[in-house]
Protein backbone atom coordinates (compact mmCIF):
# COMPACT_ATOMS: atom_id res chain seq x y z
CA UNK A 1 0.00 0.00 0.00
CA UNK A 2 2.65 2.47 1.09
CA UNK A 3 4.81 1.51 -1.88
CA UNK A 4 1.89 2.01 -4.27
CA UNK A 5 1.21 5.50 -2.92
CA UNK A 6 4.88 6.35 -3.17
CA UNK A 7 4.97 5.08 -6.74
CA UNK A 8 1.87 7.04 -7.77
CA UNK A 9 3.25 10.24 -6.26
CA UNK A 10 6.54 9.82 -8.08
CA UNK A 11 4.76 9.04 -11.36
CA UNK A 12 2.62 12.15 -11.06
CA UNK A 13 5.66 14.32 -10.40
CA UNK A 14 7.49 12.60 -13.27
CA UNK A 15 4.66 13.49 -15.61
CA UNK A 16 4.47 17.11 -14.39
CA UNK A 17 8.24 17.51 -14.75
CA UNK A 18 8.03 16.32 -18.34
CA UNK A 19 5.21 18.71 -19.16
CA UNK A 20 6.99 21.69 -17.65
CA UNK A 21 10.28 20.68 -19.24
CA UNK A 22 8.73 20.49 -22.71
CA UNK A 23 7.13 23.91 -22.27
CA UNK A 24 10.38 25.49 -21.11
CA UNK A 25 12.35 24.02 -23.98
CA UNK A 26 9.76 25.03 -26.55
CA UNK A 27 9.58 28.57 -25.17
CA UNK A 28 13.34 29.06 -25.02
CA UNK A 29 13.77 27.89 -28.59
CA UNK A 30 10.74 29.80 -29.87
CA UNK A 31 11.65 33.16 -28.39
CA UNK A 32 15.19 32.80 -29.65
CA UNK A 33 16.09 35.47 -32.19
CA UNK A 34 16.56 34.46 -35.81
CA UNK A 35 14.04 33.07 -38.26
CA UNK A 36 15.06 29.58 -39.34
CA UNK A 37 13.47 29.95 -42.79
CA UNK A 38 15.35 33.11 -43.71
CA UNK A 39 18.53 31.69 -42.17
CA UNK A 40 18.28 28.53 -44.27
CA UNK A 41 17.64 30.37 -47.51
CA UNK A 42 20.39 32.91 -47.00
CA UNK A 43 20.33 36.72 -47.08
CA UNK A 44 19.48 36.99 -50.78
CA UNK A 45 16.25 35.00 -50.55
CA UNK A 46 12.99 36.46 -51.87
CA UNK A 47 10.33 37.20 -49.24
CA UNK A 48 7.80 34.93 -50.97
CA UNK A 49 10.26 32.01 -51.01
CA UNK A 50 10.82 32.51 -47.29
CA UNK A 51 7.07 32.62 -46.70
CA UNK A 52 6.64 29.41 -48.66
CA UNK A 53 9.29 27.66 -46.61
CA UNK A 54 7.72 29.00 -43.41
CA UNK A 55 4.43 27.42 -44.45
CA UNK A 56 6.15 24.20 -45.31
CA UNK A 57 7.89 24.08 -41.92
CA UNK A 58 4.65 24.99 -40.16
CA UNK A 59 6.25 28.15 -38.73
CA UNK A 60 3.21 30.27 -39.68
CA UNK A 61 0.90 28.35 -37.37
CA UNK A 62 0.03 29.69 -33.90
CA UNK A 63 2.64 28.84 -31.26
CA UNK A 64 0.23 26.90 -29.07
CA UNK A 65 -0.79 24.70 -31.96
CA UNK A 66 2.82 24.05 -32.88
CA UNK A 67 3.61 23.14 -29.29
CA UNK A 68 0.84 20.59 -29.21
CA UNK A 69 1.73 19.07 -32.53
CA UNK A 70 5.36 18.84 -31.39
CA UNK A 71 4.44 17.12 -28.12
CA UNK A 72 1.84 14.76 -29.59
CA UNK A 73 4.25 13.95 -32.40
CA UNK A 74 6.97 13.00 -29.95
CA UNK A 75 4.61 10.71 -28.10
CA UNK A 76 4.02 8.73 -31.27
CA UNK A 77 7.71 8.69 -32.11
CA UNK A 78 7.41 11.41 -34.74
CA UNK A 79 10.00 14.04 -33.88
CA UNK A 80 9.37 16.02 -37.05
CA UNK A 81 11.66 16.64 -40.01
CA UNK A 82 14.99 18.39 -39.89
CA UNK A 83 14.95 21.71 -41.79
CA UNK A 84 18.51 21.31 -43.02
CA UNK A 85 18.91 17.59 -43.53
CA UNK A 86 15.35 17.05 -44.78
CA UNK A 87 15.43 13.80 -42.78
CA UNK A 88 13.21 12.51 -39.96
CA UNK A 89 14.64 13.80 -36.67
CA UNK A 90 13.73 10.53 -34.95
CA UNK A 91 16.02 8.60 -37.27
CA UNK A 92 18.87 11.07 -36.84
CA UNK A 93 18.58 10.88 -33.05
CA UNK A 94 18.40 7.09 -33.09
CA UNK A 95 21.63 6.90 -35.11
CA UNK A 96 23.51 9.27 -32.82
CA UNK A 97 22.13 7.86 -29.59
CA UNK A 98 24.05 4.67 -30.13
CA UNK A 99 27.18 6.61 -29.38
CA UNK A 100 26.15 8.98 -26.61
CA UNK A 101 24.14 6.54 -24.50
CA UNK A 102 26.76 3.74 -24.39
CA UNK A 103 29.36 6.40 -23.65
CA UNK A 104 27.41 7.77 -20.69
CA UNK A 105 26.62 4.31 -19.37
CA UNK A 106 30.24 3.15 -19.69
CA UNK A 107 31.36 6.25 -17.83
CA UNK A 108 28.74 5.77 -15.11
CA UNK A 109 29.76 2.15 -14.57
CA UNK A 110 33.42 3.05 -14.54
CA UNK A 111 32.85 5.88 -12.10
CA UNK A 112 30.95 3.61 -9.70
CA UNK A 113 33.55 0.85 -10.03
CA UNK A 114 36.27 3.28 -9.02
CA UNK A 115 34.33 5.22 -6.40
CA UNK A 116 32.92 2.41 -4.27
CA UNK A 117 36.21 0.70 -3.37
CA UNK A 118 37.96 4.05 -3.01
CA UNK A 119 35.21 5.51 -0.79
CA UNK A 120 35.05 2.41 1.40
CA UNK A 121 38.82 2.38 1.74
CA UNK A 122 38.99 6.05 2.65
CA UNK A 123 36.17 5.80 5.21
CA UNK A 124 37.54 2.69 6.89
CA UNK A 125 41.08 4.09 7.06
CA UNK A 126 39.94 7.54 8.08
CA UNK A 127 42.82 9.87 8.79
CA UNK A 128 45.42 7.28 7.79
CA UNK A 129 47.67 7.25 4.74
CA UNK A 130 45.14 5.45 2.52
CA UNK A 131 42.44 8.01 3.28
CA UNK A 132 44.75 10.97 2.86
CA UNK A 133 45.98 9.83 -0.55
CA UNK A 134 42.48 8.97 -1.80
CA UNK A 135 41.24 12.37 -0.64
CA UNK A 136 44.14 14.18 -2.27
CA UNK A 137 43.45 12.37 -5.54
CA UNK A 138 39.76 13.24 -5.41
CA UNK A 139 40.55 16.86 -4.58
CA UNK A 140 42.48 16.98 -7.84
CA UNK A 141 39.82 14.93 -9.63
CA UNK A 142 36.98 17.34 -8.88
CA UNK A 143 39.09 20.26 -10.11
CA UNK A 144 39.87 18.83 -13.55
CA UNK A 145 37.53 19.78 -16.39
CA UNK A 146 36.70 16.56 -18.20
CA UNK A 147 37.33 17.94 -21.69
CA UNK A 148 40.82 19.03 -20.70
CA UNK A 149 41.48 15.67 -19.13
CA UNK A 150 40.29 14.17 -22.42
CA UNK A 151 42.82 16.27 -24.34
CA UNK A 152 45.59 15.08 -22.04
CA UNK A 153 44.53 11.49 -22.61
CA UNK A 154 44.61 12.03 -26.36
CA UNK A 155 48.02 13.65 -26.05
CA UNK A 156 49.38 10.72 -24.06
CA UNK A 157 47.69 7.64 -25.48
CA UNK A 158 46.98 8.65 -29.05
CA UNK A 159 49.80 11.03 -29.95
CA UNK A 160 52.73 9.95 -27.78
CA UNK A 161 52.06 6.24 -27.21
CA UNK A 162 49.90 5.67 -30.31
CA UNK A 163 47.82 3.01 -28.52
CA UNK A 164 44.50 4.32 -29.82
CA UNK A 165 43.36 6.65 -32.54
CA UNK A 166 42.90 10.28 -31.55
CA UNK A 167 39.22 10.31 -32.36
CA UNK A 168 36.42 9.25 -34.64
CA UNK A 169 34.09 6.33 -34.27
CA UNK A 170 34.54 2.90 -35.83
CA UNK A 171 30.85 2.01 -35.91
CA UNK A 172 29.04 -0.80 -34.13
CA UNK A 173 29.61 -3.24 -37.01
CA UNK A 174 32.84 -4.05 -35.28
CA UNK A 175 31.90 -4.03 -31.58
CA UNK A 176 35.47 -4.35 -30.30
CA UNK A 177 36.65 -1.39 -32.34
CA UNK A 178 33.58 0.60 -31.30
CA UNK A 179 34.23 -0.04 -27.63
CA UNK A 180 37.88 0.81 -28.16
CA UNK A 181 36.99 4.18 -29.64
CA UNK A 182 34.66 4.89 -26.69
CA UNK A 183 37.19 3.85 -24.03
CA UNK A 184 39.24 7.03 -23.77
CA UNK A 185 36.16 9.28 -23.84
CA UNK A 186 34.54 7.13 -21.14
CA UNK A 187 37.62 7.36 -18.92
CA UNK A 188 37.80 11.11 -19.41
CA UNK A 189 34.16 11.41 -18.39
CA UNK A 190 34.32 8.94 -15.54
CA UNK A 191 37.35 9.98 -13.53
CA UNK A 192 36.22 13.46 -12.43
CA UNK A 193 32.77 12.03 -11.60
CA UNK A 194 34.38 9.15 -9.70
CA UNK A 195 36.23 11.71 -7.58
CA UNK A 196 32.95 13.37 -6.60
CA UNK A 197 31.25 10.04 -5.92
CA UNK A 198 34.17 8.89 -3.76
CA UNK A 199 33.97 12.01 -1.64
CA UNK A 200 30.21 11.67 -1.20
CA UNK A 201 30.44 7.99 -0.32
CA UNK A 202 33.24 8.63 2.15
CA UNK A 203 31.45 11.41 3.95
CA UNK A 204 28.16 9.47 3.97
CA UNK A 205 29.93 6.47 5.47
CA UNK A 206 31.67 8.63 8.04
CA UNK A 207 28.32 10.17 8.94
CA UNK A 208 26.80 6.76 9.57
CA UNK A 209 29.85 5.77 11.63
CA UNK A 210 28.74 8.19 14.32
CA UNK A 211 25.17 6.87 14.36
CA UNK A 212 23.93 5.16 17.50
CA UNK A 213 23.06 1.94 15.70
CA UNK A 214 26.67 1.48 14.64
CA UNK A 215 27.61 1.45 18.33
CA UNK A 216 24.82 -1.07 18.97
CA UNK A 217 26.29 -3.28 16.26
CA UNK A 218 29.73 -3.04 17.85
CA UNK A 219 28.18 -4.03 21.17
CA UNK A 220 26.92 -7.21 19.49
CA UNK A 221 30.48 -8.17 18.72
CA UNK A 222 30.86 -6.97 15.13
CA UNK A 223 34.30 -5.74 14.17
CA UNK A 224 34.75 -2.23 12.82
CA UNK A 225 34.93 -3.59 9.27
CA UNK A 226 31.81 -5.72 9.69
CA UNK A 227 29.85 -2.77 11.09
CA UNK A 228 30.87 -0.59 8.18
CA UNK A 229 30.03 -3.23 5.61
CA UNK A 230 26.78 -4.60 7.08
CA UNK A 231 25.23 -1.50 8.61
CA UNK A 232 27.13 1.50 7.31
CA UNK A 233 27.08 0.91 3.58
CA UNK A 234 23.35 0.46 3.13
CA UNK A 235 22.56 3.55 5.18
CA UNK A 236 25.21 5.53 3.34
CA UNK A 237 23.70 4.46 0.03
CA UNK A 238 20.86 6.95 0.32
CA UNK A 239 22.93 10.11 -0.32
CA UNK A 240 25.10 8.16 -2.74
CA UNK A 241 22.06 7.23 -4.84
CA UNK A 242 21.11 10.90 -5.10
CA UNK A 243 24.52 11.74 -6.48
CA UNK A 244 24.51 8.73 -8.78
CA UNK A 245 21.21 9.90 -10.25
CA UNK A 246 22.50 13.45 -10.69
CA UNK A 247 25.70 12.11 -12.22
CA UNK A 248 23.83 10.49 -15.04
CA UNK A 249 22.63 13.93 -16.01
CA UNK A 250 26.17 15.31 -15.82
CA UNK A 251 27.53 12.42 -17.81
CA UNK A 252 24.98 12.87 -20.59
CA UNK A 253 25.79 16.57 -20.76
CA UNK A 254 29.48 15.84 -20.37
CA UNK A 255 29.27 13.37 -23.22
CA UNK A 256 28.09 16.20 -25.45
CA UNK A 257 31.30 18.13 -24.81
CA UNK A 258 33.60 15.13 -24.78
CA UNK A 259 32.28 14.16 -28.22
CA UNK A 260 33.81 17.40 -29.49
CA UNK A 261 37.25 16.38 -28.24
CA UNK A 262 37.13 12.92 -29.81
CA UNK A 263 35.19 13.87 -32.96
CA UNK A 264 32.49 11.35 -32.06
CA UNK A 265 29.33 11.68 -34.20
CA UNK A 266 26.96 11.51 -31.20
CA UNK A 267 24.08 13.63 -29.94
CA UNK A 268 26.53 16.35 -28.92
CA UNK A 269 27.77 16.94 -32.44
CA UNK A 270 24.19 16.80 -33.71
CA UNK A 271 23.17 19.50 -31.23
CA UNK A 272 26.04 21.83 -32.09
CA UNK A 273 25.55 21.40 -35.82
CA UNK A 274 21.85 22.12 -35.48
CA UNK A 275 22.56 25.18 -33.35
CA UNK A 276 24.87 26.69 -35.94
CA UNK A 277 22.31 25.92 -38.67
CA UNK A 278 19.37 27.13 -36.58
CA UNK A 279 17.71 23.76 -37.12
CA UNK A 280 15.35 24.41 -34.22
CA UNK A 281 13.29 21.25 -34.42
CA UNK A 282 16.42 19.12 -34.00
CA UNK A 283 17.69 21.21 -31.08
CA UNK A 284 14.30 21.04 -29.37
CA UNK A 285 13.97 17.33 -29.81
CA UNK A 286 17.49 16.37 -28.75
CA UNK A 287 17.31 18.55 -25.66
CA UNK A 288 13.86 17.16 -24.83
CA UNK A 289 15.18 13.65 -25.21
CA UNK A 290 18.11 14.36 -22.88
CA UNK A 291 15.81 15.96 -20.32
CA UNK A 292 13.46 13.00 -20.64
CA UNK A 293 16.34 10.60 -19.97
CA UNK A 294 17.45 12.58 -16.94
CA UNK A 295 13.95 12.85 -15.48
CA UNK A 296 13.38 9.13 -15.93
CA UNK A 297 16.70 8.36 -14.27
CA UNK A 298 15.69 10.58 -11.35
CA UNK A 299 12.45 8.64 -11.14
CA UNK A 300 14.39 5.37 -11.04
CA UNK A 301 16.62 6.85 -8.33
CA UNK A 302 13.50 7.59 -6.29
CA UNK A 303 12.40 3.99 -6.70
CA UNK A 304 15.83 2.80 -5.61
CA UNK A 305 15.52 4.95 -2.47
CA UNK A 306 12.37 3.11 -1.56
CA UNK A 307 14.12 -0.23 -2.02
CA UNK A 308 16.98 0.86 0.23
CA UNK A 309 14.98 2.71 2.87
CA UNK A 310 11.90 0.97 4.30
CA UNK A 311 10.81 4.21 5.97
CA UNK A 312 10.00 5.70 2.57
CA UNK A 313 7.85 2.73 1.62
CA UNK A 314 5.57 3.11 4.59
CA UNK A 315 5.51 6.90 4.73
CA UNK A 316 2.42 7.74 2.76
Amino acid sequence: MGMLVYLTRRLISLFLSLVVASMVIFLVVEVAPGDPASYMLGINAQPDTIAALRTELGLDQPKLQRYFSWVTGMMTGDFGTSYTYRAPVAQMIADRMWISLPLALMALTLSALIAFPAGLLAASKRGKAGDVSVMAATQLGVAIPNFWFAMLLVLLFAIKLRWVSAGGFAGWDNPMAAIKSLTLPAIALALPQAAILTRVLRSALIDTLSEDFMRTARAKGLTRGQTLWRHGLRNALIPVLTILGLQFSFLLAGAIIIEQVFYLPGLGRLIFQSITQRDLIVVESVVMLLVFAVIVVNFLTDLAYALVDPRLRSRA
Binding site: E211, D212, F213, R215, T216, A217, R218, A219, K220, G221, L222, T223, R224, H231, R234, N235, V308, D309, P310, R311
Partner: peptide
Amino acid sequence: EGQMCEIRGRDIGMVFQEPMTALNPV
Protein backbone atom coordinates in the same frame (compact mmCIF):
# COMPACT_ATOMS: atom_id res chain seq x y z
CA GLU B 1 40.33 -5.90 19.53
CA GLY B 2 39.58 -9.26 17.90
CA GLN B 3 39.27 -10.99 21.26
CA MET B 4 37.01 -8.20 22.55
CA CYS B 5 34.72 -8.70 19.55
CA GLU B 6 34.26 -12.30 20.63
CA ILE B 7 33.35 -11.22 24.14
CA ARG B 8 30.99 -8.39 23.21
CA GLY B 9 27.52 -9.71 22.51
CA ARG B 10 28.42 -13.19 23.80
CA ASP B 11 29.65 -12.59 27.35
CA ILE B 12 28.64 -8.94 27.79
CA GLY B 13 25.49 -7.41 26.32
CA MET B 14 24.69 -3.72 26.32
CA VAL B 15 21.51 -1.65 26.21
CA PHE B 16 21.66 2.04 25.31
CA GLN B 17 19.88 5.23 26.23
CA GLU B 18 18.27 6.26 22.96
CA PRO B 19 16.07 3.47 21.56
CA MET B 20 14.88 5.65 18.69
CA THR B 21 18.34 5.64 17.09
CA ALA B 22 19.91 2.49 18.51
CA LEU B 23 18.54 0.26 15.74
CA ASN B 24 19.57 0.19 12.09
CA PRO B 25 16.63 1.86 10.33
CA VAL B 26 17.00 -0.09 7.08
